[in-house]
Design a protein around this nucleic acid. Structure first.
Lengths: 253, 253
DNA sequence: AGAGTTCGTGCATTTTCGTGCAAAGGCAAT
DNA sequence: ATTGCCTTTGCACGAAAATGCACGAACTCT
């Protein structure tokens, strides 16, 4: 078995099954796990896949640091993404924020959906590469590395020249009094700008965001047209928001 | 057994089985492995196959789709990336093209290097996330999915407002007469625009690009200030380029 | 917190590579 | 025929690559 060939095979498996398990492959090929691990390590070095404990995952799914991302309400996010995806109509122009939840949303879009997606997030762009019917328009600007999105005057200028039907916003805090908040001023400014240009703003919030407050305000809750939350949200958190007239979409519905 | 005949046989096996193992063939034909290796080396020199440890694989994958493209001559690319990375000075403003080679370059940049990178490629942005000292400025525009880069009027407009010290360009073809070529008209236009804004343009080309010609012209070779190629490039391909006054940087140097 | 995996690295062994060299054969001019 | 030149082939040898094993560290799960 030629080394190069084997690496190609690994990528092949990855493409077909969405993951590679070092142990399985080593048994199937009759080679030591060390060899497979080494291959995976090298492929990861070239950015062709993402190394994880026990094997490897596609590189495109590399977002945020692993320890954080792994345990935080993953099912929640997948649910939210699925519901949000269902809100999009054929032919609409959609603004997608950066963040793990919105990337899930992008990935959850029907492959056949004909729509236009505007985004300032490279991750969203990558997630939509295999949605042939979706046109993607990327907003440029200075990259804010902590969240991997474009920010700054250039981004806001570009945003101000576009109008969208829907904006799916991600935030780090949503609070009855303090409204929507996020951890960076520049990001907040961009979100605000997008909000202005979108006919409708939908906030995606996994459970831990409810009732939380971060440093920088984005917009007040009056600007929000809808809020998609996970299915297991306690009413004591949702109630105050509902009272403010926000349309709350529960994923259990 | 005639030499030519044997080479044809090797290509035949490659076509049928998708690979050639030097040892197997040498035993089957009753010849030394050296002879087979020599044949393979020569065929590789003609671009008819790709030499790998233990044998050879098809070369035609250079034109495949994105996932496939990524496997082609990866060592070559890593070498090129390393050398190119060494050409960057502290504090410079660099334009990085999209493409696998330039992504390797991004990854190969010293973590401590203080510089500004301009790019229209989401992949480059992602690759630079863990380079804290590198400022990244993303060029927006319509996403051309085949290569995952921003193109179109918006991109070109944004590019025209920036000037850079260095531009590392990737192409699919570089030919003494036809100059630099690539497979998409929009991409060609973007590359041309960047070239205009950069003080110096360096082309990165793995072996299979030399002498190749694609559909759309980018710029003539006069615009090129440097060319970085892999270490094992035959002189018959490099000579004509050198004659045009292009500064060729061999990775073996 | 502890048991069981998995990881990465260093090291030794085996395989493969590339080059230099010489033997063997073909071919043309002398 | 002989000489000189070129090609082909195999062999030798140092270099590079690939693989497996061992061991201590890191990770996962309960």
């Amino acid at each position: 078995m030629l080394t190069t060939e084997r690496k190609a095979l690994l990528l092949d498996i990855l493409g077909k099954e969405g993951r590679v398990v070092a142990k399985e492959v080593s048994q199937k090929l009759g080679l030591s796990e060390d060899t497979i691990r080494r291959d995976l390590r090298e492929l990861a070095g070239e950015g062709l896949l993402q190394r994880v404990h026990g094997g490897a995952l596609p590189a495109s799914k590399a977002l945020g640091d692993l320890p954080t991302r792994r345990n935080v309400s993953t099912d929640d996010k997948a649910e939210i993404a699925k519901v949000a995806a269902g809100m999009i109509r054929e032919g609409q122009i959609i603004f997608l924020d950066g963040g793990t939840t919105t990337v899930s949303l992008a990935r959850a879009l029907p492959k056949a959906l004909r729509a236009t997606v505007l985004t300032h997030s490279p991750d969203i762009v990558t997630a939509l590469l295999d949605h042939p019917a979706v046109d993607v328009e990327l907003i440029g600007g200075r990259i804010f590395k902590h969240s991997n999105v474009a920010v700054g005057a250039v981004a806001i200028e570009a945003i101000s020249q576009i109008r969208a039907d829907l904006y799916f916003m991600g935030v780090t805090g949503i609070h009855p009094e303090h409204g929507l908040t996020t951890g960076d001023r520049e990001e907040a400014a961009v979100k605000r700008a997008i909000c202005r240009q979108a006919a409708e703003t939908i906030v995606l919030a996994s459970r831990e965001k409810l009732g939380a407050v971060s440093a920088y305000g984005v917009v007040s809750l009056h600007e929000v047209d809808g809020l998609v939350v996970g299915s297991k949200c306690p009413e004591n958190l949702l109630g105050p928001l509902r009272d403010l007239g926000i349309h709350i979409i529960d994923t259990s519905a």
